[in-house]
Design a protein around this nucleic acid. Structure first.
Lengths: 335, 335
DNA sequence: CTGTTAGCGCGTTCAA
DNA sequence: TTGAACGCGCTAACAG
């Protein structure tokens, strides 16, 4: 049979309250003596308080919910470790929910997790209008952090990556190497991040007096296969370099181009974006733009816990910078 | 302010007990009429019962703990999705804890999660003697499933992969292709799975009258880098094929051998084990042995939940079979 | 400094 | 068929 606070109290010859006080460090009003006596009993009996009962009265579960599309996606794996490491360090547990990019699943999970079960919520949303949706199903007082989304004003806490800067830096790198014919594999252009990356590409060209050419654009969908598909096209039109809007497509293009006998980077330079480090690819092969997933997760979690503890009141928008990671997939164009 | 069962009772003009009965489907003794009235109020007020309070009396949290070394490892990512999909489908949440292969962290997590917070536990242990350790910190009645471990008798529920068969099949495949000089990159031989895979290799040779040669063995540590390191050695001693005890090492060896000008599979065939499908590697390149991570997770979870619900009493050991997955990294040896 | 009382929000007797 | 009373194990308010 499990021991309760009453048992400990009886054995230590004190009241349950005193035991509670000792456990919770409210030791200011407890004699050194009784304190030691209680601690000894707790130690000896290996007593652990019932968290459920405790939560019922304190109204905190020390558990946060993490809702994301799919943990198998390397971004989210890394992100989740950032979140979990931070949370666990502060004594919080993390409940993980995969939505598979489905709105119904996302809404259902959030609704289930809601304010009764968790202290806070971190969401990588797949909804069209996440803020209004999520605010509808959660209550005022549930702290929330949105990842990969940017809010207006201080509606909600947001942590996101500067996608525009990512596209800009990637393209600028190619320009700096001397490239003028620069292809761009875009992401799905109904998605914000893809548009921003694309805008970065366009502005980098403009700022360096290189004219934008429609035929250099290949619309992809962020998938490895899109990179594969683009390869034949780019080989045929003769660009000297390619900016792929994410690493998956960059690697796909690289793979297929190599198969087609195109030398990377001698014939065509490739730069990606995200800096996922897939197993089995020699490190530092791909030149890319780093997106600090782990750090973003950590920051999201710290933002959440700070709010939870009342350390901050206002919501924040925190943007993470893009940085260039040099690899072996880019070089000067051939003369 | 949050609504409680009392509020609903008052609004519907019944007692809290009746509301409780309606919510829990104990409707046998409730008039159709009152039932509808209560349901209507619940609907209108969007009332959701407090799970904490409920858990305090029912003694179930509908939450399970998942303790594993590192979610970033593709095996565990896949495994966790198998577990989560199954759990969520049945209305359970999953709390994820990464131990980074550290015994202290593992013990600490399990101890924290313990029987008060969760209904059951799934563990991929890094402990030397997981069963005795884990049984010590958990109580009798906490259902537990161990993954990647095999128990004697019915001490505990276990789900594991037939590593021996994996090593055997991989080696047999090379033999069937006509190879006689077959290298083996082993895993860390203080780990059970590595020993079993190695034994599979040895027995496959023996059963086919190929003598075991010490110089064909390269001891690795399951890391990509070990594969890289082994390449030079294998090139120098002139094997025609290599069985790598996991895919990571297989891919490492492949990478380095290619750089050294060795053609795969013409000069050297490579077969791996695990069937992880790393992003950026063309699908089906590597010939390997499939380990069904997702299925194993699902099975582990179903085992746990069955036990939770009292559907099964005895503990089970469930073994998963190895299957060959043909890729492009193996071929007949040159004459 | 310590203990008594009350109550968190539910499910579960037991009596009506 | 319904409801009043009790208790799950704990913390908080108030006395002493």
């Amino acid at each position: 049979m499990k021991l309760t606070i009453k048992d400990i109290a009886r054995i230590a010859n004190v009241s349950p309250t005193t035991v509670s006080r000792v456990m919770n460090g409210k030791t200011e009003y407890v004699t050194q003596e009784t304190q030691e006596r209680v601690l000894k009993v707790i130690e000896e009996t290996n007593y652990q308080p019932n968290q459920i009962a405790r939560s019922l009265v304190t109204r905190e579960t020390r558990t946060i919910g993490l809702v994301l599309p799919d943990i198998r996606n390397p971004f989210f794996t890394e992100l989740s470790r950032g979140i979990e490491d931070y949370a666990n360090q502060l004594g919080y547990f993390v409940i993980l929910c995969n939505t598979d990019h489905k709105s119904e699943k996302e809404i259902q999970y959030i609704s289930l997790l809601k304010d009764k079960y968790i202290d806070g919520l971190i969401v990588v949303s797949s909804l069209e209008n996440p803020i209004s949706h999520i605010k509808k199903i959660t209550t005022e007082n549930t702290p929330i952090v949105l990842i990969d989304h940017k809010a207006n004003d201080e509606e909600i806490n947001c942590v996101y990556f500067n996608n525009y800067q990512g596209g800009y830096l990637a393209t600028k790198h190619l320009i700096d190497l001397g490239h003028k014919n620069i292809g761009c594999i875009t992401g799905p252009l109904h998605v914000q991040s893809a548009v921003e990356r694309f805008n970065g590409y366009k502005d980098a060209l403009r700022d360096n007096n290189i004219s934008f050419k429609d035929e250099f654009i290949f619309q992809g969908n962020y998938r490895y296969e899109d990179g594969i598909e683009s390869a034949k096209y780019y080989k045929s039109i003769g660009v000297t370099s390619i900016f792929a809007s994410n690493d998956l497509m960059a690697l796909g293009a690289n793979q297929k181009l190599a198969e087609l006998g195109v030398k990377i980077p001698e014939d065509i330079s490739i730069v990606g974006l995200d800096n996922i480090t897939p197993i089995g690819i020699s490190d530092s092969f791909l030149t890319t733009i780093n997106q600090p997933f782990y750090e973003m997760g950590k920051t999201a979690c710290s933002l959440l816990l700070d709010q939870l503890k009342g350390l901050i009141q206002t919501n924040k928008n925190i943007q993470f910078d893009a940085t260039l990671v040099l690899g072996k997939s880019t070089a000067h164009p051939k003369k």
